[in-house]
């Protein structure tokens, strides 16, 4: 009985990992508007990590890095060929000119910080 419970529990945990990290998206989705969207870079995450924008809009993301760890020092939009160096405590605007609808990931240099710009 214990054995079955432990095994079932393990499978449930695996299912939860798959669902949480790959199949679900964060509830907090920031809508981009005309004013810059503040994105705080700290403790391994962008806050907010998911930003939605309308196709045709120019979006300004204002990154504020408070994490002095080297992982946080760059933000890279690989698919858009856009990147910026982030100094601690100094806001840096990244302007995304209108792009085709789609999901554009932005990450730190080694891909541990991850965020998404969803253009609809």
């Amino acid at each position: 009985m214990t054995s079955a419970l432990v095994n079932a529990g393990g499978l449930v945990v695996i299912g939860l990992i798959v669902w949480w990290f790959w199949l679900s998206t964060p509830r907090r989705v920031q809508q981009a508007s005309r004013s810059p969207v503040d994105v705080v870079v700290a403790d391994g995450v962008y806050t907010p990590a998911v930003i939605e924008a309308r196709a045709g809009d120019t979006v300004t993301l204002r990154f504020l890095r408070t994490d002095p760890g080297p992982c946080a020092e760059k933000v890279i939009f690989s698919d858009l060929g856009v990147s910026a160096d982030l100094a601690v405590g100094s806001p840096r605007d990244v302007v995304i000119t209108p792009v085709a609808p789609g999901d554009y990931e932005f990450t730190c240099q080694m891909g541990m910080y991850r965020g998404r710009l969803i253009v609809r």
Binding site: W20, F21, S24, T25, P26, A42, D43, G44, V45, Y46, T47, A49, G69, M112, Y113, R114
Partner: peptide, 19 residues
């Protein structure tokens, strides 16, 4: 502490990292 806060914040953002 930074590993734990990083892990917790990443978890909430449906992300996982070295922390």
């Amino acid at each position: 502490r930074h590993f734990f806060t990083g892990a917790w914040k990443a978890w909430r953002a449906h992300n996982a990292n070295m922390d």
